[in-house]
Design a protein around this nucleic acid. Structure first.
Lengths: 176, 176
DNA sequence: CTGCCTGCAAAGGATTTGCACTCAT
DNA sequence: ATGAGTGCAAATCCTTTGCAGGCAG
């Protein structure tokens, strides 16, 4: 009864890892994974609310509340990651294998958590004007991260929050 | 009837500028300015909600709704600036003279709105672990800003949003 | 005096939660 | 079988808004 047939490799991988972790793979969770994966592929950045709406389209039997709970638990379990957009919204990404739980500092004993490269996950900036979210290669933050680490011992996590600014198009508009 | 006696220079300056702009200086607005200024001086970073609470302590006759409205209007008028913390909260700072309205692009006909230097306002980072908000000199973002401007034509505004990460103390804890 | 700002209270919308039930394992 | 995950609906949170009155200018 698994309609995995249409799953992208990413979703399939996430499902497999979930099972391996003892996380249950339910229709609701599956639907959430698919919606988020689809958005990722389309370079869309979806909020919990929108994910809820799409999941509802895809599987009307899945309740909104469940979507919220799923987003929370899958994020905590390391299968999704959330990015805070300046303002109020939070968007979700499907996490690639390899970089899992940073959420649970307790079991971090294997890898370089701070000095090492940010591994997976790109950063984002959002245009104040048009609201569009743009992807930024993580290494763009390297010098800033280094500076913060050096200066105040702060380990920056660039992938977690989007900075604000004005995109090229809107800049042209405003400049007039 | 002005109890300005205890006003810090910053508050006094803001009040003066407000009057000069034709903005009314009411007890409510005055209280908000004082609360925010006090927090600034104490390196505290207050959300609208907390500001509301403090204003209420200071002047119980001022209604919460008024605080929200005041924060909004004074921000738009350029006397306060808001910084989005990753998550959901927004904190407020008392703006120094010199840098005003970027919020209303419509009537921007007098000053350089986009190309100009970010002027006042430092940036922030917030610790995921302890929630503390740390100040960061704006120039720390310079190379990132340059990179974004150069690469995708994006005009970064580092002062508007706080990035997340882990502070030195919490890093020590986690590292164990 | 005029109109901006305020107080009040009620609306608003997104997210969360208690509970009993269902289904994945 | 067993409990994690779910559906439902109500509660909750912060914030916003309509309106009439008050005060700053």
């Amino acid at each position: 009864m698994e309609e995995n047939a249409v799953d992208s490799p990413r979703v399939a991988s996430a499902v497999a890892r979930m099972r391996a972790c003892g996380e249950r793979v339910t229709p609701a969770r599956h639907a959430v994974l698919r919606v988020v994966d689809l958005a990722d592929r389309a370079d869309e950045h979806l909020t919990a609310e929108v994910i809820g709406a799409r999941v509802f389209e895809l599987a009307p039997s899945v309740h909104r509340a469940t979507v919220y709970r799923t987003l929370t638990s899958l994020t905590e379990a390391g299968f999704l990651s959330q990015v805070h957009l300046g303002g109020a919204s939070t968007i979700y990404h499907l996490d690639a294998p390899g970089a899992a739980a940073e959420t649970d500092p307790a079991d971090a004993a294997s890898g370089p958590a701070v000095e090492g490269p940010p591994a997976a996950g790109h950063a984002h900036v959002r245009c104040i004007s048009c609201g569009r979210v743009l992807d930024v290669p993580p290494n763009a933050f390297d010098s800033l991260a280094a500076r913060l680490a050096d200066g105040i011992g702060f380990a920056l996590d660039p992938a977690r929050t989007a900075l604000l600014g004005t995109c090229r198009a809107c800049r042209a508009d405003t400049a007039d």
